[in-house]
Design a protein around this nucleic acid. Structure first.
Lengths: 343, 343
DNA sequence: GTGAAAGCGCTAACAT
DNA sequence: ATGTTAGCGCTTTCAC
């Protein structure tokens, strides 16, 4: 591998000049620049980022820790993050905590050991709250994505889950569905919690309305890896149960699309028609409509915006560490209802 | 950030000794080791990988370039690769070519500029054949995954697609389905090509058998990003067409699960029963059965094995670059049939 | 077994 | 505008 020393020799200039050319520094003769660039082409030179990083104390890498890479929601975010980072000449080191708090810590520690310039964390739950609190004291900037920690001064980008929950209820009522059942998954993270809180808040303000809450069986803590499958089957089971007991409300609002699709499967099998017999609304649109037999009405979380905002904030923190806990770094992004065939 | 110099001062030993402790080198007194380790704990020391990498000429990162991170097949591989790399104390820099050959080259060049220790590439097609040929001459080891290039001495790990195609036909015939239609997607990569070749080879050897081949409309080259959605809808369209024209064979063997699920949707809508009216078999099992109204029979590609083999080979090439083009680095992994409810 | 010192490739400060 | 040089934090000889 050629070095700037080689370039200097070939171009017949000093290494300082070469460095100036490479970094577009002021004051280099057109002549020198040309010669150096020629040498670069000739030797297929590439900067040694170790050497550069050692001086600049940067790796031009950021770490992304997600709970699972198999749940399609997370790759969507990862995809955007990667693209945004590319624009900033940074790369993404991806790793998955597999829904294990210990692994989550391990992964973050590995990233720190790698001298990443920043970390975007999608927490698998709030079990690592105190560890994350400690992280905030360190110099490597951290942005939480998709889930936040209550009462922790950490920058975050999340969906506006409370509002989405209320919007969903209002939408269904507005459509004329006069009784609504909210199907909620085991509460694993603040996204779920916030949606439930939104529903409960709504109920408190509208005590006359027929809104019921149905809890699915919780996911065993040791097997969150199959969280997606679990929620699909819980939505299914709960659906069968409501149908069997003839307790089906006029509309079902599912806490997320996995539960909704499980519920849909139960309906299909029981010859319950959507939306004629029961309307169905999901949250956090996941699967392409081409995949589903009936396109599900659901809220789109705007993954692209969430991902790019996370990168934007992280970049800002990297450039201005002192602004670490400004409240402008708490962002909630509204979801948009996409009407399918089930409402 | 503390350095080994700090550790040396605190522990009261020399820099060399500290280095020896950190790297578990021979010959360090129990006493010295203890003192250094104490200092490490005290200061929360972390090695500076830039400095280490500069000397060792390693980054302990590998690059993974995939065509898309939204198609669930690729995250599955990425997940395994990440886990395997962790065991080897390496991290994965992920990036997506978004099915663009130019982007694919850009991404690889970026990785090289990052001094990655090796690259795992899932080619988006074979359009970059000559570029990849050039890559093989360089010192950074490269392993192709899931798709190979014909007649290129590049290490690869792929599924045994030809055999899978033949197995599928034999399985369906063995089940008593006496006419088979093979639904093939636009040929975009060697995985698709190999499956088709397997079918054609089988036909050549069994000219009497009723095996027909049906081509779906090709995906526009400029929009491979939505390849998954496209194939779902092509399977659907082709299904509707066969049903309308009453040309439905007794069994349909789809080139992949996306086409198969599209076809399934067409059947459901047309009240065609699976497998009573038509049997359906896919390849490269993608979605959890909890998601599907009817569990699809399909071949499991063993992503875990493919991913871990790719890492194993890459590691071997990193340790023994001279073995670059041994034929042991051409691996084809058999798929396993998972019987669902559609055959 | 341990310490001293060279040097990896680069940037930045300084001298010219 | 260009050249010279110190030094980033580490590993690795090579004396001792």
């Amino acid at each position: 591998m050629p070095t700037i020393k080689d370039l200097a020799r070939i171009a017949g200039v000093s290494i300082g000049t070469v460095s100036n050319v490479i970094n577009n520094k002021s004051s280099v003769t057109e002549e020198s620049r040309r010669k150096v660039e020629e040498a670069i082409r000739l030797t297929d030179y590439k900067v040694n980022l170790h050497a550069r990083g050692m001086i600049l104390k940067k790796s031009f890498n950021i770490g992304l820790v997600v709970p699972s890479i198999l749940d399609p929601f997370f790759p969507k975010l990862a995809d955007v993050i990667e693209q945004e980072c590319e624009k900033l000449d940074m790369n993404v080191i991806l790793s998955s905590s597999n829904y294990s708090p210990d692994r989550e810590i391990d992964k973050i520690e590995q990233m720190l050991a790698k001298n990443v310039d920043g970390i975007i964390l999608i927490p698998e739950s709030d079990r690592n709250r105190s560890y994350v609190a400690g992280l905030l004291e360190k110099e490597t900037p951290l942005v939480l994505l998709a889930r936040r920690y209550n009462d922790l001064r950490a920058p975050y980008v999340v969906a506006d889950n409370r509002k989405t929950a209320e919007d969903g209820i209002n939408y269904l009522l507005g459509k004329g569905y006069d009784s609504i059942g909210f199907l909620v998954s085991p509460l694993m993270n603040t996204a779920d919690e916030d949606r439930l809180a939104g529903i409960q808040n709504w109920k408190n303000n509208h005590s006359e309305a027929a809104v019921s809450i149905h809890y699915c069986a919780p996911l065993p803590v040791h097997d969150r890896k199959h969280s997606m499958e679990h929620q699909l089957s819980q939505g299914y089971e709960k659906g069968l149960e409501l149908i069997r007991d003839q307790r089906l409300p006029r509309a079902v609002f599912a806490n997320n699309d996995y539960i909704a699709l499980g519920f849909m499967k139960a309906c299909t099998e029981s010859s319950i028609r959507l939306p004629d017999d029961v309307a169905l609304l999901g949250v956090s649109r996941q699967f392409p409509k081409e995949l589903l037999s009936t396109e599900l009405s659901s809220f789109d979380p705007h993954s692209e915006i969430m991902g790019s905002e996370a990168v934007r904030i992280l970049k800002e923190l990297m450039d201005h560490p002192e602004r670490g806990d400004e409240s402008t770094h708490h962002i909630e992004i509204g979801m948009s209802l996409i009407e399918g065939m089930t409402t």
